[in-house]
Design a protein around this nucleic acid. Structure first.
Lengths: 347, 347
DNA sequence: ATGAAAGCGCTAACAT
DNA sequence: ATGTTAGCGCTTTCAT
């Protein structure tokens, strides 16, 4: 038995329009028209050409078409959030919007590497992408690439945009507002806020909305507790909130779902019931966490997929030659109600 | 002030080789050679042409190059795991391997939609990708697309391959073995196994390795407990393991990190200490979970990024005309030791 | 040492 | 109703 006898796969040479034309006994031009529903010819010829194309398994070479049309039906997607959970729904929304237009997506992960980023952008440009979408994991940090004055339209989604660019971000103030108003409707009176590090812009945005809604409702504002985005911090925050003397909170609005989980666990350890004694709301609506807490966690969802869709559609219209108003557009959040807040009094 | 006065962005017409040639006073052919280090010409001319190219900001049109070279320096990445945590490390590894070769990645999410899948594959083929990588979220399910007899090489990574295709998957038996052997080295005597649903192939593969290693070490085999991949199941499994009469386990090997978390929490609630009374090992090494358990969880890592790299490199060599041995290649796992198993007796 | 010409696979004016 | 011609932007013989 022969060694070194691996079946070297030989790939069939692609069928070209020329092949189809020859086979059908017409010129390339006629074949092209037949397949693109252009020009005039007898229905019979058209059908015959179509049939030969089909039988030969002809597929037009997209490179040739793009070269001619000056449009590759391809957009570049830049991200620095390979492992995060934000980019995925975002991307899914983007692809979604683009697929319907027959546009494919080049995925490029740039990490924090300036050089790599620039390299990727050039590669995209060289491949003649129709446009570029930049996404990230936080809206107050810029990707490590310069996207100003490119030869193609650029859209920012969930990342810090260049000035005068078109950008979409979640409205974190709106998200916080939804949460606090939900608590108010449920009759909670002492609502605390446990959030992430002060270095995040959203932390302040949410805290501000938290204060505003409480004031509007004549409820006391408890100074927000800022820490890290971890369960451990949620734990610790509960100690700080409940150890002191004075009135205890009957609701906690958390900066993310992991903090919320820490809070819920800590409350249980203290013999405090959720939602009966204390209501809890999280942020991000990370299902894997929100559904594992006991009870399941009510949480603010940033609608990232919708945000991605919006970004994709806007890019498409830009590519189509329309113009879009520059500036940052904030998209509303949505409260996903589970069981960590209890029911309406009259519910 | 005028309304409707949005600055319609006008994009500069790309500079072509023809422009460069004209500007430098040479023919396109010469310009091409100068920029590609081909042909012969005075160093002076070459440099002059280069300089004009640079000053004009010339970038070759990749579409034209690809059309000629019959190679797009682009590969398609098919996945049905948009939201999962498996595809991301995988993708990152793949891009990693490809970027160095100047190859970009088309990301396509096909969900479970057969029609959408076929559509995407055709789109990729039309765009003349050099090859395709199929990835998924479990290795015993096929993507909803037919990738046999394509015009380009195909590699499978972490998804069920076609027969005779080249595929890379994690070696789950190896992963289980690493876990159980670790327990044995630490002197654990009654090691239980709590895993996911019987409908997953990996569940059996791991259970088999579990049995084998215990037998090799002369330790009793406790019939594996199969359930779901959730924390709640981890909880319940602990009840089943510890409620009965008879000897209690001193170690639990879990099918994923969420189960492990449920197990650890349930043990604590029973007053059982981890790792002192019971050691726990998880699977997947999902950092966000493994680092949030108390104590932090020792877990089996499937080395997905490495697996992706391997897949990427192999595709590249296939594209380069080399041949690869068909079949499923299993890549080893790695045990990430944290604090849920305790130390070596003499450590 | 440089350039003219052909051609990658396709589309679109402009003939006939 | 169909074919001829001229490109898209580039590379590559082959002349000069």
């Amino acid at each position: 038995m022969a060694l070194d006898d691996l079946p070297v796969p030989v790939f069939p040479k692609p069928v070209t329009l020329r092949d189809v034309a020859a086979q059908a006994g017409v010129s390339v031009a006629t074949a092209s028209k037949a397949l693109n529903d252009q020009g005039r010819m007898t229905a019979e010829t058209r059908e015959r050409i179509r049939e030969t194309a089909r039988s030969l398994g002809f597929r037009p070479n997209g490179l040739a078409q793009s070269l001619l049309r000056r449009r590759s039906f391809t957009v570049g997607l830049l991200t620095n959030d390979t492992y995060g959970r934000f980019s995925l729904p975002l991307m899914s929304g983007i692809s979604d919007a683009l697929v319907d237009a027959g546009v494919s997506v080049f995925l490029c992960n740039v990490e924090e590497d300036q050089r790599l980023g620039q390299l990727h952008v050039e590669a995209m440009l060289d491949k003649r992408v129709d446009g570029i979408i930049a996404t990230g994991k936080r809206i107050d940090r810029h990707l490590p690439v310069d996207l100003a004055n490119l030869r193609v339209p650029v859209i920012y989604a969930f990342t810090q945009p260049d000035p005068d660019a078109v950008a979409f971000v979640s409205d974190d103030g709106d998200g916080a507002r939804l949460a606090i108003e939900h608590f108010c409707r449920l009759g909670r009176k002492r609502i605390a806020h446990v959030s992430g590090p002060a270095s995040f812009a959203v932390v302040h945005e949410r805290a501000q909305a938290y204060r505003a809604v409480l004031t509007e409702n004549g409820l006391p504002v408890i100074e927000p507790l800022l820490g890290s985005w971890s369960e451990a911090w949620g734990h610790e925050a509960v100690a700080r909130l409940f150890d002191g003397r004075g009135k205890k909170p009957d609701a906690v609005f958390c900066g993310n779902d992991q903090i919320a989980r820490g809070v819920i666990d800590a409350l249980r350890e203290r013999g405090l019931g959720v939602p009966n004694d204390v209501g809890v709301i999280g942020f991000d609506n990370w299902e894997i966490v929100a559904e594992a807490t006991r009870p399941p966690l009510t949480s603010v969802d940033m609608n990232l997929a919708a945000l991605g869709r919006e970004a994709g559609l806007t890019l498409l219209s830009l590519v189509g030659g329309k113009s879009a108003t520059p500036g940052i557009r904030k998209l509303p959040c949505r409260l996903v109600v589970r069981q960590s807040c209890g029911r309406l009094p009259d519910g």
